[in-house]
Amino acid sequence: MNDSFTLGFGGGGFEAALRNWEPIISQTISFVPTLEGGLKGGMNQREIDRGVDGFKQLIESYFSNVALSENRFTRAVRFK
C-alpha cells in the first residue's frame, strides 16, 4: 500500500478499527525484527530496502495463508 489515504474501514469508527486490527497486529508484530537490518550501519538505503522487502514478504505470506480466511477482518478493511 503506497498511499495510506486509500485505506478505509467498514464503518464503526475508530473503536471498531481497533478491534479489527488488534488480532492482525498481535499475530504479525513478531515480523518487526526483520526491519532492524535497515537501522544498522548508519541507515544504509540498501539495507533499509532489504529490511522493508523482507517485512513485506512476511506480511504478504501471512495474508495469503491466514488473514484472508478471517472474514471479519477482510470485510472491515478495504483498499480504495
Rank of each mutant, 00 (worst) to 15 (best):
I25P: 00
N44W: 06
E60P: 02
F31D: 06
M43C: 07
S64K: 14
V32T: 13
Y62T: 05
S61Y: 12
S4Q: 02
A17D: 06
I25W: 12
N44F: 02
R78I: 05
D49Q: 09
F5P: 00
I48N: 00
I25V: 15
G54W: 02
V77M: 10
I59K: 03
I59P: 01
I24L: 07
M43D: 00
E36P: 02
T34G: 01
P33S: 04
P23Q: 06
S26E: 11
Q45S: 08
V66L: 00
A17S: 14
P33K: 03
D3N: 15
T28W: 01
Q57S: 09
V32Q: 06
N2P: 07
R72Y: 08
G12I: 13
R19G: 03
T6A: 07
T6F: 05
F9I: 10
F9Q: 04
E70K: 07
Q27R: 13
R78G: 10
S64G: 06
E47P: 01
E22R: 12
F79V: 15
A17K: 05
Q57I: 09
G41S: 13
T34K: 12
E36Q: 11
F9L: 09
F63S: 10
I29Y: 03
W21Y: 14
F31H: 10
A17Q: 06
R19D: 12
N2E: 09
G42D: 12
W21T: 08
E47I: 02
N71Y: 04
V52Q: 05
V66R: 05
F31S: 00
F63V: 15
G8C: 03
I24K: 06
F31Q: 03
G10Q: 12
P23C: 03
K56Q: 05
N65F: 03
A16H: 14
G37S: 09
P33Y: 04
G51V: 09
W21P: 02
G13V: 11
G13P: 08
N71H: 07
E36T: 13
R72N: 06
R72F: 10
F55Q: 03
L39A: 12
V77D: 01
S30D: 02
G13F: 10
F63E: 11
T34S: 15
S61V: 04
G12N: 07
S4E: 12
N71C: 04
S30R: 07
D53I: 01
S26N: 11
S64P: 00
L58C: 02
N71D: 08
A76I: 01
I29N: 05
N44M: 02
G8T: 15
E70R: 10
K40Q: 12
L18S: 00
G10W: 00
D3H: 08
L39M: 13
T74G: 03
F9S: 09
T28F: 01
R78E: 02
F79K: 10
G42M: 06
L18A: 06
G13Q: 08
T34V: 14
G8V: 13
